[in-house]
Design a protein around this nucleic acid. Structure first.
Lengths: 242, 242
DNA sequence: TAGAATGGCTACCGGCGAGTATGATCCACG
DNA sequence: CGTGGATCATACTCGCCGGTAGCCATTCTA
């Protein structure tokens, strides 16, 4: 990025400064995320954050405009990982269930990251209306993305027919909740936890031997659910088990 | 204490006052729960709670000693429903999976109740160490109860072998998360949501036709998991398939 | 070396909100 | 009637914390 101008340009130093500033700003945001993670948003003062960086409060205000923005940035940093997961997997030529699993793995990783707390527990009431609207939009985007994958999976036969809305709530809830109990330096990484959860979701609690006489109690079974022909042929190849 | 006296005693009126006090105290706690639910703990002042009751702050302080205790009481009120669910189902003569489902239904109901927010989102950092310890103990009790049901289900064959710890986290997480998005006067009740979630958990996302080539990726397969003979005979009778 | 830009600090303000001191009011009971 | 406890309001204290004003140090530019 800095290679666009020639090295000897008089703006080089200035641009390096800019980069320096970005680095420091990121450090501020990361420190805030860690503090929020440990003590909660309201129990964290800007003095705390400044102290963690071994600077003083006005220095923090030199990089961010206010505390609310700090929370917002942490949230965006956290959710960006999930959005990236969606972008990556969108192009993959896999059955929807596999793409969903890939997204959920990234999801778990993001929630277990240092920004997980902020992403998951940022409360609307702590933010100004417009920032709250931004966050709501992003959250809705994730939710709709999961629902879409579920619908696609039902269509291509890789996912058992179910109510996409409720299922998405269940999946996202289980993963979001990781932020409540997970602490860094635990035995498992976020991806591993997501993997374990996926195993549960995928297979279900019920033993295999009981499948036979099961009536699909699925709500929203509008159409095509019980039509066996709806299962697309592309899936039946089962190309990529893990 | 005064209730030990006989009903006709001159203390009767006094006891009615006591009852009155209990009723009012409950009203205070419920008002607090609603306020926390709407605006969050830190964004709710005791003046807000008092205003909702159309009294003033000192009146609130007449019934509770401080704000922290208010949160604590709300938490206890919420979690009591779940503990009751465990007590009720413990005696039922059902396979463990059915008992687990019964507990989860009550769980969902409790989380969707007006105390759900407090139960789920009460942060340790907002409470004094001893109250925090109380809450942690109760939460752990619930968690251990779910794990126990899972282990029993694996033993009696009504639940597919899995890691009880991770599975309990997934189940509880999905249900806890209800408190984040559920608002009263929604189309579904808490029990219905729990029912929908249970359907997902029980059956799993994977279509039935794919069971064949599935390798049980279950961690913690210490023993008995892959041993088909481990499935107990009591189960194979399938006595209570709904 | 002047001067501007950048980065940081000390010291403060103002408001919000938890919690309290004080006393008024009501009502049961002697 | 009047006494004492229960209930509640007015009006305050006080500490914390978000945010700011203004000053100093350093570094880059010309």
């Amino acid at each position: 990025m800095s290679s666009l101008k020639d090295p000897g340009s008089p703006w080089r130093a200035s641009r390096e400064r800019m980069r320096d500033r970005e680095v420091k700003r990121d450090a501020v945001i990361r420190a805030a995320a860690r503090a929020f993670n440990r003590k909660g948003y309201h129990n964290t003062s800007l003095d705390d954050i400044a102290a963690a960086l071994e600077v003083t409060k006005p220095t923090v205000y030199y990089y961010v405009s206010n505390k609310e923005q700090l929370l917002f940035e942490c949230f965006v940093a956290g959710i960006e990982g999930i959005r990236a997961a969606f972008r990556e997997t969108r192009s993959l030529a896999l059955p929807a269930r596999e793409r969903l699993k890939a997204v959920l793995r990234h999801y778990g990783e993001a929630v277990a990251s240092e920004f997980g707390w902020c992403m998951v527990r940022a409360e609307d009431q702590d933010l100004s209306p417009d920032m709250s609207a931004h966050i709501k939009a992003m959250k809705s985007e994730i939710d709709q993305g999961i629902r879409r994958l579920l619908r696609e999976g039902i269509q291509d036969g890789s996912i058992h027919p179910c109510d996409p809305k409720m299922t998405a709530f269940a999946l996202a809830g289980a993963l979001n909740w990781i932020a409540h109990w997970y602490r860094e330096s635990q035995s498992m990484t976020g991806t591993e936890i997501a993997e374990a959860f996926i195993a549960v979701f995928e297979r279900g609690l019920m033993p295999r031997s009981q499948n036979s006489n099961e009536d699909p109690t699925c709500r929203k079974s509008k159409s095509s659910s019980s039509r066996p022909g709806a299962r697309r042929s592309a899936r039946s190849k089962a190309p990529s088990r893990r």
